Simulated scan of single mutants.
Amino acid sequence: MQFGVFTVGDVTPDPTTGREPSEGERIRSMVTIAQKAEEVGLDVFATGEHHNPPFVPSSPTTLLGYIAATTSTLQLSTSTTLITTNDPVKIAEDYAMLQHLADGRVDLMMGRGNTGPVYPWFGQDIRQGIPLAIENYALLRRLWDSEVVDWEGQFRTPLQGFTSTPRPLDGVAPFVWHGSIRSPEIAEQAAYYGDGFFSNHIFWPASHTAKMVDFYRRRFEHYGHGSADQAIVGLGGQVFMRRRSQDAVAEFRPYFDHAPVYGGGPSLEEFSTQTPLTVGSLQEVIDRTLGFREYVGDYQRQLFLMDHAGLPLKTVLEQLDLLGEEVVPVLRREFAALKPAHVPDAPTHSSLVAARAEAAGGVELASA
């Protein structure tokens, strides 16, 4: 099981001091957080993609490329790559380039984002969101899987004899997760290709997440990629912890109350009951996270949102110390003890290369 953190890269004033970091500070803090994640033994750092204030990560490959140069084991990912408004040709080339620079420590998550105006900013129509996601991803797969591509679709100019460069590292494309909160069409797409499905899992109740994951698992099996419990699932999560639960609640409350995505809605206590947000002691975080398995089954990746709502970098780094050194070791042990042997681990570049070699060997034996 992989554990890590994801960032949305918001620039939000600290409600307890009124101080707002500059864009440069926020960008550098995300680099520091990724480096800290590796230092404390986490597996993954993922960044969102946004093109509007108050968010700064408009160029995920630039950020991840820099982080790749300053880390050695960390898996680098996105928590959203906008498949609807990015040209698939550019995605294919950018992430293949990142693969080479990071020695394969790269995967990515396709998504449509949560900002409607982004569509016209990049010359697209939000009413075509789902068709764009489906067509653009089909082209992206072709670009990675075929050296020479002839292609014609609805949303971009045709390609004739086109080769994207560089080619994927070792001839194996980055593993893809499809992220969705509410769209069964995206879960269907993930299942069709045998890709991973990532449920953001931070704003919706457990019952909704359970339905989406179950649908994906059933369709994964339908398309012949394995049994439903072998489907590749990831979850998002939100935590804030201190050694005493009451200290965590008292410290996090002003951030919750004033954050743009929370403020003015349910109380901290109501939101924590209705969603997977966990604010409390280390043991409460452990117990709540282990409970996710009860309604989604065995899954492969757990990412936590830690650096949002104006939390100062010092506090985020303290949270990462607790997460990596005291919480995740327990979660690793407990999840590993529960996972059946036939349920796969999260794909990595090395495991995908090995699987391709094994499949090629089987074909050679069959034809001998």
Results as ranks from 00 to 15, higher is better:
125 D>W: 05
126 I>Q: 03
127 R>Q: 06
127 R>P: 00
128 Q>M: 12
129 G>P: 00
131 P>H: 04
132 L>V: 07
132 L>Y: 00
137 Y>Q: 02
139 L>V: 14
141 R>K: 13
143 L>C: 10
144 W>V: 04
144 W>M: 06
151 W>K: 00
152 E>G: 04
152 E>I: 02
155 F>T: 07
156 R>W: 07
157 T>Q: 12
157 T>I: 04
157 T>S: 11
159 L>S: 11
161 G>N: 13
163 T>W: 07
163 T>R: 06
168 P>S: 08
168 P>G: 08
168 P>K: 11
170 D>C: 10
176 V>D: 03
177 W>V: 05
179 G>S: 12
181 I>N: 06
183 S>T: 14
188 E>M: 01
190 A>L: 07
194 G>L: 14
195 D>V: 03
197 F>H: 12
197 F>P: 00
197 F>S: 10
198 F>R: 04
200 N>V: 15
203 F>Y: 06
203 F>H: 03
204 W>L: 08
212 M>H: 01
218 R>I: 01
223 Y>P: 03
225 H>V: 06
226 G>L: 10
227 S>A: 11
229 D>P: 11
230 Q>R: 12
231 A>H: 05
239 V>N: 03
239 V>L: 14
245 S>R: 10
250 A>M: 05
250 A>G: 14
259 A>V: 08
262 Y>Q: 15
263 G>A: 13
263 G>T: 12
263 G>F: 00
